[in-house]
Amino acid sequence: MKARVTVMLKTGVLDPQGEAIRHALGSLGFAGVTGVRQGKVIELELAATEAATAEAEVKAMCEKLLANTVIESYRVEIL
């Protein structure tokens, strides 16, 4: 079973990397980009066979390691 975790900075938290991308896009001539937020995607291969168990496990991983929940939010998809 596979899981995909998407980690993004929470709404409102400054994203310097996103700002840098927005700025670079502008200077390359892509007008009209008013905001960029970037994050990361983590794909996990899991031994679990039940979606519910897998999801609970991955959420625990997010809380402990994959996301810094003080400033980041995460989303888990079981594929």
């Binding site: 900075l9 929470k10 409102g12 938290v13 400054l14 994203d15 310097p16 700002e19 840098a20 003080v70 400033i71």
Partner: peptide, 12 residues
């Protein structure tokens, strides 16, 4: 009580 955490940008 945690407000939105300030994030610094040293390059700015």
């Amino acid at each position: 009580k945690r407000p939105t955490v300030q994030v610094g940008d040293p390059f700015t």
